[in-house]
Every structure is written in C-alpha cells, then in structure tokens.
Amino acid sequence: MIKIRYFGFLKEILNLEEEQIEWPQGDSQALLTYLRSRSDFWAESLSEQNIFRLAINQKIIYQTSPISSGDEVAILPPVTGG
C-alpha cells in the first residue's frame, strides 16, 4: 500500500485529500500513468500542466524516482505563493 496526498486545486477538483492504493512496484511516472488511466477526468485533472512536482516521503523529487510500498506520495499542482 502507498498513501497519495493531493494539494491545492487538485484536492478540490478530485474531491480527495488522500487515498491508499495497492502498489506492487514502479516509479513516479508509472504512478501518474496509473492514476491518469482511471478515467478521462483523472487524465485531464493530472495533466502535465497541472502538476508541478511530486514529493516522496516529504522530499520533493526532481526526476523520476522509485516508489515502494509504505511510501507517502504527494502530488503538487503549480505553486502560487509569495
């Protein structure tokens, strides 16, 4: 199992703050591909332009990285602070 957390407008449009899913193995790109395959709505919501970065276990990743069972993955939309 892995935990997925959503932030900002993603949390709102998906109406989902977090979820647990079975995750045998695969990297961050595979996870996005899986989530996008759920429906057209998911594919559109998680389109490339709607995702800034992912964080694995509270560390932002800058390239495709492995995700293992027990990990927490956060999906971050483009940031708008300051």
Partner: peptide
C-alpha cells in the same frame, strides 16, 4: 529569494472575490 520562493515553495493561493465567487490562482 523572492523569485525562487514564488516558483518553488509549495504554497497555493485561493482568491475569494467580493461577488462571492472564488478560484485557485494559476501559476504566472
């Protein structure tokens, strides 16, 4: 620091307008 903070730090703004609509701010 400000330029990087605005484009790298994970903050998300939602605007609430006087006409009672609201929207998440898009990255500029």
């Amino acid at each position: 620091i400000m330029d990087y903070l605005k484009t790298e730090a994970p903050f998300w703004k939602k605007e609430f307008f006087q006409n009672e609509t609201s929207r998440w701010v898009k990255a500029k």
